[in-house]
Amino acid sequence: MINTIPIHYFLLLSAMLFTIGMLGVIFRRNALIVFMSIELMLNAVNLTLVTFSRFRGDSSGHVIAFLVMAVAAAEAAVGLAIIINIFRHKKVVNIDTMDRMKY
């Protein structure tokens, strides 16, 4: 009995991590920390995918988690380039000040 893990433990862990990431996006104004919170949310979703994949004994969920990782890499590259560009123009990374499309 000690060697079995109920599936809902994994789902609750995933929900908690997702919530922490979401609160980070809502509360923090530093663009870099907002970005890291988004990565945290993506990882929480990956944990859910892998959990259900293990539950069904079908590794399709692993493939989707792999694709999510690729999307996260693309998103991080473009997002960080945008942050660098805005920092070069405005010398801040506070997202409250990023309220225009063009400077």
Binding site: F35, L80, I83
Partner: peptide
């Protein structure tokens, strides 16, 4: 991905006023 993040953090080298305040 995290190497990219830390690289950007160190490239920007933010000071206190550049980070801005949280309200």
């Amino acid at each position: 991905i995290m190497v990219l993040f830390t690289f950007v953090i160190m490239l920007l080298n933010l000071s206190k006023e550049e980070i801005g305040e949280e309200r």
